[in-house]
Design a protein around this nucleic acid. Structure first.
Lengths: 230, 230
DNA sequence: TCGTAAACGAGAGCACTGCTCTCTAATTGA
DNA sequence: TCAATTAGAGAGCAGTGCTCTCGTTTACGA
């Protein structure tokens, strides 16, 4: 993860480096999808690529750094899925509630299709995790899609419900959510969305819910109603 | 985890076995609290007890089985914390909302005090996890406390909100929640509670929420309002 | 009471992991 | 062309989960 990764490769060596970095990440991603984060082995990745395990350390300083790269990819992956779903729902002329439901469903579909990526991002953090600044911008994409829907909806927020006191939410986030009354609720909806998916994927709903897809739709609709989306 | 563990030990050998099983679990629990589930090492547990690592396998067939034992303990631990908090709030004559808030706070306090146990239970499931029948009864204690509050509250449920269609929730669970209109909401509140705590503990709220304790109180109050608790 | 069967603990060993170090070969820019 | 940097390979270290074997201890029925 040195600087030349982000700049355009000029020499053959830099090109080879960029290509191999990409290949390592892809191979790691495939292994992640198969065995999950905890069982992801740097040696196995090296083996799959036909190189010595020590050589991988020229590209990623540690297993955790490799995982961090995969975390960023995963965040971007959900974010893109959410953005695409919203763009399509918007193009089809759906009202805010429809867009909200579409994005929620897209996130669930992504989670089901990429179970181990979901684990990696929303499950227990990896031991040596540092949460570098690089991840935050990627992590924000999905929730910001939800914020966008809310901001455009001109929601009617019931006045008699509990409000978070001023200053509870970070200034930068508060500015992004232009409808002040919904700030607390929107963040709650976001964590609730992931919470429901965690429960479904991690088996907490075993013997509680019968039809996961339908129950998820219900929760998405319930949340939309609480947000006052039209 | 053989049968004689659960029956009263008669012989000296059975007594020693029960004692050692307990000692292994306790040592493992201490190590869990220090280094977390992923770094819990069976060999280190054996070392701490001054025994050969192979000897531990006489008591727990695998590392996963040891972790499963700790999972059950953790579930009972939260469950007990929740029950105690509710009992005290009830004894103090608090209305349902007060009891709800007390239990929610107790769960959060438990999670903060037992971060790694929370990870173990509500984070990424352990790889070889089986979710045996043993865990379900322990796992149910905390959510059943929430159910109890709700059932006693005679909540007034707003009629115009989305309802889960009949049959979406397991028969056994549906019977436990005596107010049909709140079944979907209550389960949502449960997963939402854990979702918020996951976000707080796993760093997802970094740069979003300023005061975690106050924000948590807000979410608990908001959920209580949605449930129509008095 | 005694002898057999079961349980126990220790140790060696296997295959694997992350990671470091050293050494050689290739590539680079001056 | 040549010194400096970089890549790759291999050996090695310390650790892991788990298995197998081998004596030893305990329990229980004849």
């Amino acid at each position: 993860m040195s600087a030349e990764t982000h700049s355009a490769p000029r020499t053959a060596r830099e090109l080879a480096r960029a290509e191999l970095t990409r290949a390592i990440k892809q191979s790691a991603s495939e292994q992640l999808a198969e065995v999950g984060p905890s069982a992801l082995s740097l040696r196995a990745v090296a083996r799959a690529l036909g190189m010595a395990s020590s050589a991988v350390y020229r590209y990623f300083a540690s297993r955790d750094e490799l995982l961090t790269a995969l975390i960023i990819d995963a965040y971007n992956s959900v974010g893109e899925a959410a953005e695409q779903a919203d763009a399509q729902a918007k193009a089809e002329g759906h009202p805010p509630t429809g867009r909200w439901l579409a994005v929620n469903r897209a996130v669930r579909a992504w989670a089901l299709a990429n179970k181990h990526q979901f684990e990696l991002v929303y499950g227990t953090p990896v031991p040596g995790y540092a949460a570098p600044q690089d991840t935050t911008v990627a992590a924000a994409r999905m929730p910001l899609t939800l914020v966008g829907i809310y901001n455009e909806a001109h929601p009617e927020f019931p006045a008699d419900r509990p409000q978070p006191e001023p200053g509870l939410i970070t200034e930068t986030i508060a500015e992004l959510i232009t409808v002040p009354e919904g700030r607390g609720r929107l963040i709650l909806a976001w964590s609730g969305l992931i919470g429901v998916l965690s429960f479904e994927l991690f088996g907490q709903f075993n013997g509680v819910v019968t039809d996961y897809a339908k129950y998820f739709d219900y929760t998405a609709r319930a949340t939309a109603a609480e947000l006052g989306l039209g």
